[in-house]
């Protein structure tokens, strides 16, 4: 069990660093969503199911969507 936790922690850290240094904005946003999902797993392991649900629904779901909309809205007007 602790090794799964270790892998998830590493996943969170690697995705966070990658999200910051990535050149492509969409992949950066998706990687930030992966960070949220990994953190949500850690919440579940830390005996906080309420917080895990919130983080999965809001942090990994809605927040990613709002970021993606913002990315699209700052791209589409470039083409005109």
């Amino acid at each position: 069990m602790i090794f799964i936790d270790l892998v998830v922690c590493l996943l969170a850290i690697v995705s966070a660093v990658w999200a910051i240094i990535a050149r492509n904005l969409v992949s950066a946003v998706v990687l930030a969503g992966v960070v949220s999902l990994a953190v949500s797993y850690l919440f579940l392991r830390l005996a906080a199911p309420d917080v895990a649900m919130t983080e999965a629904a809001i942090g990994a779901g809605l927040s990613t969507v709002i970021f993606l909309i913002a990315v699209r809205r700052t791209e589409e007007e470039e083409k005109r």
């Binding site: 309420d50 895990a52 649900m53 919130t54 629904a57 809001i58 809605l62």
Partner: peptide, 17 residues
């Protein structure tokens, strides 16, 4: 159970999405 107004509200918002 785990969950509540904030999580349920987020789920409803995802349906609207």
């Amino acid at each position: 159970t785990p969950g509540g107004g904030f999580q349920g509200g987020a789920v409803i918002a995802s349906a609207v999405l």
